[in-house]
């Protein structure tokens, strides 16, 4: 599997340069775009095993474009959340997991898998599927990451609370009740609070794990607007089971299936002119 990595990259480059759009080839197993913009990270031959020995990620390589939104799509159990959680080493909280390969942060060229997990999580923020504010006040939730980093100056905290909540489009709704419990808010507000909490510490990469799956359509629209705003400022990697959502909010999309990356492409191209048969089957609803 890993031996044909270079060859597939070559295929993808030639395909990209040749601009072969249109009908997907029946025989093309994988297709990776080599994007033009600056990269924030490059994943190379990443494999991941859970404690019970199940391999959830099988030789995934893909770039992560700087300050753009990249969506991960695929059927349930394809490993997209597992892949996302490799980026902040969340798996390390559980015993017996194993990684191989690398997630190189660029331009500093550090393998995220070899860094201290705690430092990785300070640099890479995450928003979870279910809103998970701390059972504290709204204000305390936003500053939680800052307190962890030892920032305690009142003026600094006040300012960051306001900018983060504005960024998360929540400020106008909560500015008069910052000191009320976060759990008294609606689900959509709680999720935007979690995004504000993650943004408050200025993450280098923001991971979003199906952030709207527990929300109603109106709250979902608000979160999607927010992600669109983040594009251009923050590098975002988002897992979603909703293809329309991926099409609406992302610049690049990766389609995963059974732990493998099938296609990584510009979002418009992936949805309109998929290069692989399996991608087309999935996005047209014939499968998955």
């Amino acid at each position: 599997m890993s031996t044909d990595q270079t060859s597939t990259i070559q295929i993808s480059q030639s395909a990209h340069q040749g601009g072969q759009a249109g009908k997907p080839s029946e025989t093309r197993e994988h297709w990776y775009l080599e994007p033009d913009g600056a990269l924030r990270a490059r994943v190379s031959n990443l494999k991941f095993w859970y404690a019970d020995g199940t391999q959830a990620i099988d030789d995934v390589s893909m770039p992560l474009v700087d300050k753009k939104v990249t969506a991960l799509i695929g059927p349930s159990g394809c490993g997209k959340s597992t892949f996302l959680r490799c980026f902040n080493r969340m798996h390390d909280l559980y015993q017996g997991v194993k990684y191989s390969g690398s997630i190189n942060l660029l331009p500093e060229d550090e393998n995220l898998i070899d860094l201290d997990a705690n430092i990785v999580r300070m640099r890479v923020g995450m928003v979870f599927q279910k809103p998970n504010p701390f059972p504290k006040s709204i204000y305390e939730n936003v500053i939680a990451g800052l307190k962890i980093r030892g920032i305690r100056k009142r003026e600094v905290l006040d300012e960051i609370v306001e900018t983060s909540l504005r960024q998360a489009a929540l400020w106008d709704e909560v500015k008069d009740r910052l000191h009320q419990p976060a759990l008294s808010m609606s689900g959509g507000q709680q999720q935007r609070l979690c995004i504000a909490r993650a943004l408050a510490v200025k993450p280098e990469i923001l991971l979003l794990d199906e952030p709207t799956s527990a929300l109603d359509p109106i709250a979902t629209a608000k979160v999607e607007d927010l992600i669109n705003e983040l594009s251009g400022n923050v590098t975002v990697l988002i897992v979603t089971h909703n293809m329309q959502q991926a099409a609406r909010i992302s610049n690049y999309t990766a389609y995963m299936y059974l732990g493998k990356l099938i296609e990584y492409n510009d979002t418009n191209d992936l949805f309109q002119r998929p290069k692989c048969q399996r991608t087309e089957d999935y996005i047209t609803g014939r499968f998955g």
Partner: peptide, 13 residues
């Protein structure tokens, strides 16, 4: 709940 633990670790605690 596991979410609380992951939220704290996820923030870099």
């Amino acid at each position: 709940p596991i979410e609380l633990r992951e939220a704290a670790y996820g923030l870099g605690a």
